[in-house]
C-alpha cells in the first residue's frame, strides 16, 4: 500500500463504493470523506434506508417490480387494465415508461434479456411466469418494450413465437424519430424505422 493511502474501515468503505455502478476510485474516496465529515444522524439515516431496502424490498409476485408488499402499487391499482401487459427487461425500464404517464395497463419485468454470449437463456428470465399470467388473466394485448438492441429484439421475438398460436395481440413499441428532433440530423436507422412505422393521419 502506498504512503498516504487510506487503511482500515475507510479503505473498506471506499472499496465498497467502488463496487457501485458509475463510481470510480476518486468518486468513492470523495463520498467516503463526505460521510466521514457528515452529521452522525445523516449516516444513521443512510444505514437505516439501506437496511430497509435489503430486508423489505423484493420483487412483486405478479410483475417482479421491486416492492415492499406482496404486490406492487401498479398491480394493486384497480384503474390499471390487467389484460394489457407491457413487457420490459428491467425495473428501470418500467420507471422510464411510468414517467411518460400514458400507459394504463400493467407491466411484466423479465429481469434481463436472452443473451447466449453471457449464458442467459429464457430459463433465467421470468418468461414462464409471464405465460402463466397471460393464461390466468386472459390477456388481450402484450406490448413488447424490450430494448431495441439485437438481444432485446431477440427476446421479444422468442416470446412472440411462444404465443404465436394464442389469440393474444402482440405489439412492440414504435421506433424512429424523437419528438422535437430535426430530420436533417436524424441518423439513417431512425429515419428507416420512422418510414417503416409511418401512420395514417
Amino acid at each position: 500500500m502506498a504512503v498516504g493511502e487510506p487503511r482500515g474501515p475507510l479503505a473498506s468503505l471506499i472499496e465498497e463504493f467502488c463496487r457501485l455502478p458509475g463510481i470510480g476510485p476518486k468518486s468513492a474516496e470523495r463520498l467516503a470523506h463526505h460521510l466521514l465529515a457528515a452529521d452522525p444522524a445523516q449516516i444513521s439515516d443512510l444505514i437505516a434506508a439501506l437496511s430497509r431496502v435489503r430486508d423489505g424490498v423484493h420483487p412483486c409476485r405478479t410483475c417482479f417490480n421491486p416492492t415492499e408488499g406482496d404486490q406492487c402499487d401498479i398491480c394493486l391499482d384497480p384503474r390499471r387494465d390487467p389484460q394489457v401487459i407491457c413487457v420490459v427487461e428491467q425495473p428501470k425500464d418500467l420507471m422510464a415508461l411510468e414517467r411518460a404517464a400514458v400507459f394504463k395497463g400493467q407491466y411484466h419485468i423479465l429481469q434481463g434479456r436472452i443473451a447466449p454470449l453471457e449464458n442467459v437463456g429464457p430459463e433465467k428470465l421470468t418468461v414462464d411466469q409471464l405465460l402463466r399470467r397471460i393464461e390466468e388473466n386472459q390477456v388481450r394485448e402484450l406490448i413488447m418494450a424490450t430494448n431495441p438492441t439485437i438481444e432485446g429484439d431477440g427476446t421479444a421475438l422468442y416470446i412472440s413465437n411462444l404465443l404465436a398460436s394464442t389469440p393474444v395481440k402482440i405489439t412492440r413499441l414504435a421506433r424512429g424519430l424523437a419528438a422535437g428532433s430535426h430530420l436533417e440530423f436524424a441518423n439513417r436507422d431512425a429515419l428507416a424505422d420512422a418510414l417503416e412505422g409511418r401512420r395514417t393521419f
Binding site: 447466449p116 454470449l117 439485437i150 429484439d153 431477440g154 421475438l157 422468442y158 413465437n161 441518423n187 439513417r188 436507422d189
Partner: peptide, 23 residues
C-alpha cells in the same frame, strides 16, 4: 453503422446463428 443486418431480428434461427458467428 454501415449494415445492421436488420433481417436477423425477424428470425430466431438467423439471429442465434449470427450470435454464434460473433462468439
Amino acid at each position: 453503422a454501415v449494415e445492421r443486418f436488420v433481417g436477423l431480428r425477424q428470425s430466431l434461427t438467423g439471429l442465434y446463428a449470427g450470435v454464434y458467428v460473433a462468439e
